[in-house]
C-alpha cells in the first residue's frame, strides 16, 4: 500500500480555497488588460525582492561587518550600517524623483522641478553619515580617555 500524501489541516484548506476564490475574482479583472505584463510585475516583484534586493543588501552588510572586523573595529558596524540603511531606504522609495526618471512629466504636470531631490537626498545622507561619524568619534575618544595611561 502506497502512503497517501497527507492532507493537512482541513480548516486551513477551506480558508485558503476561500482566499483563492476571492483572489481569482479580483485577479481576472486585474489581468483583464495586458495580462502577461501584469503577471510579470506581480511575480517579478516577489522574485526581484527575494532573489536580488535582499541578497544584495545582505552581502553589502556582511562586507561591512567583515571589513570592520578585519580592521579590528567591529564595534563600529552600527555607525556604518544605520546611516547606510536609512540613506538607501530613502533612495529606494524616492528613486524616480531623485534619479529624475519622471522629470519631464513631473515638471510639466506640477510646475515644480525635480532638480532639488538629488541634492536634498545627498544632503540628508551627508547629515546621516556625518552625524554617525561624529558619534563614533566621540565614543572612541571617551573610551581612550577612560583607559589608564599605562595602556598607551
Amino acid at each position: 500500500m502506497r502512503p497517501r500524501p497527507p492532507l493537512g489541516n482541513p480548516f486551513q484548506i477551506l480558508l485558503l480555497a476561500c482566499s483563492f476564490a476571492l483572489a481569482g475574482y479580483a485577479g481576472v479583472r486585474l489581468l483583464a488588460g495586458d495580462w502577461r505584463a501584469v503577471a510579470l510585475w506581480l511575480v517579478g516583484a516577489a522574485l526581484l525582492h527575494d532573489l536580488v534586493l535582499l541578497p544584495l543588501y545582505t552581502l553589502a552588510d556582511r562586507a561591512v561587518v567583515r571589513g570592520l572586523g578585519a580592521a579590528g573595529r567591529r564595534e563600529g558596524t552600527l555607525y556604518v550600517r544605520v546611516p547606510a540603511a536609512l540613506s538607501g531606504l530613502l533612495l529606494l522609495v524616492w528613486f524616480p524623483l531623485i534619479s529624475g526618471m519622471a522629470d519631464r512629466r513631473y515638471r510639466s504636470a506640477t510646475g515644480l522641478s525635480t532638480d532639488g531631490f538629488l541634492a536634498r537626498w545627498l544632503l540628508i545622507s551627508a547629515v546621516l553619515f556625518g552625524g554617525s561619524a561624529l558619534l563614533w568619534g566621540l565614543r572612541v575618544r571617551r573610551a581612550t580617555k577612560r583607559r589608564p595611561p599605562a595602556a598607551h
Binding site: G8, Q12, L16, F20, V43, A45
Partner: peptide, 15 residues
C-alpha cells in the same frame, strides 16, 4: 501536505 502546498502558493500572492 496539501494544506502546506496551498499556503505556499498563497504566500506568492501575499508577497
Amino acid at each position: 501536505s496539501l494544506a502546506h502546498a496551498l499556503e505556499r502558493i498563497s504566500l506568492l500572492l501575499l508577497v
